[in-house]
Amino acid sequence: MVFYFKSSVVEPAAFVYVGKDKFENEELIKYGWEEDVWFHADKLSSAHIYLRLNEGDTWDNIPEDLVTDLAQLTKANSIEGNKKDNVTVIYTPWSNLKKDGSMAVGQVSFKDHRKVKKVLVPQRENAIINRLNKTKIEKQPDLQQEREDRRRELRKRDQAAQQQRRKEEAKVLKERQEKKWQKDHAYDDLFTEENLEASSNQNRPENWEDDFM
């Protein structure tokens, strides 16, 4: 089971999802998207909270209000952290998560610790949690299929973009070739047989020089 939330502090509303338990978290780790940012209580047990970024957004430039929402939701979904003040929440891109066979179910590490950010949550803010909980939906998705569908969509986009680039490049090349041909043949009409005869003195009348006297 996966819980879905929406945060309305940004426009369009941010898409957030949470694993129900450690086994579901394992699936989320495995089938995350490149656009996902992972949130977790630092050094405490908590749910794995994921923010799915909108296209064009980056994980290191998430609006402050949205980070606050995710941090509050993370704290609220930690049994121990929910009871404490001054809880630190960490977040990093899904692609930075590291998982190997020696780790327990739901446990992760990081490929690059420099890509991990921290935010301090002084205390629980019920107004935020209540607002987010009103958007809560439970689903049982096929995470693997969803990711395969997404990757298929991205491949189609890339192929379409490549085809468009090739068309534009071919158009530019054709225009350059036409301009070069026009430049190379700009004086061709001046040297036609008709023009050469018209400019030849041999075909002029005997008194043609009188015109200049």
Rank of each mutant, 00 (worst) to 15 (best):
K139G: 03
Q164F: 04
E153I: 00
R166C: 08
E153D: 12
D142I: 06
I137A: 10
R157N: 05
R166M: 12
R131I: 09
R147W: 04
E148R: 03
E146Y: 04
E146D: 10
K136D: 14
L143G: 01
D158F: 05
Q159D: 12
D158M: 08
E168F: 08
I137W: 10
K136I: 14
P141D: 04
L132A: 05
E138Y: 07
P141I: 04
K167R: 14
P141R: 03
E138L: 10
E148A: 06
E146M: 12
E138W: 10
R166Y: 11
R147K: 15
Q159V: 08
R151H: 01
A160M: 03
R147D: 02
Q164Y: 06
R152L: 01
L143E: 03
K134V: 13
K134T: 15
Q164E: 14
D149V: 01
D149M: 01
K167V: 09
Q162A: 12
R150F: 01
T135F: 08
E153K: 04
N133K: 15
E138H: 09
E153A: 08
R166L: 13
E148H: 02
R165S: 10
Q162I: 09
T135W: 05
R165M: 11
T135E: 09
A161Q: 11
R165V: 06
T135L: 10
K156I: 00
Q140V: 14
D158T: 07
A160N: 03
Q140L: 14
Q144P: 01
N130W: 11
K167W: 07
R151S: 00
Q163F: 09
K156M: 04
L132C: 06
R151K: 13
D149E: 10
R151G: 00
R155M: 05
R166D: 15
E168P: 02
E146I: 07
D149W: 00
T135V: 07
D142E: 09
E153M: 06
R155P: 00
K167F: 11
I137K: 13
P141M: 03
I137N: 09
E148N: 08
L143P: 02
R152T: 00
E153W: 01
L132V: 08
R166K: 15
A161Y: 09
E168G: 08
D158C: 05
I129Q: 07
K134A: 15
R165P: 01
K134W: 11
D142T: 03
A161L: 12
Q144W: 09
I137F: 10
D149C: 00
E148T: 05
R152A: 03
A160E: 05
R166P: 07
K167C: 10
E138Q: 13
N133E: 15
Q162T: 08
A160Q: 08
K156F: 01
R165H: 11
K139E: 13
K167D: 13
R147S: 02
Q164W: 05
L154C: 02
L143Y: 00
I137G: 07
D142Q: 07
L154V: 00
K136C: 12
E153F: 02
R155A: 02
E153N: 05
A161D: 13
Q163Y: 02
L154Q: 03
E146Q: 09
Q162R: 14
R165K: 14
N133T: 15
A161G: 06
Q145A: 09
R152Y: 00
K136H: 15
K139V: 08
R165L: 13
K167I: 12
D158E: 13
K139Q: 11
D158N: 08
A160Y: 01
D158V: 08
P141G: 07
E146K: 06
K156R: 11
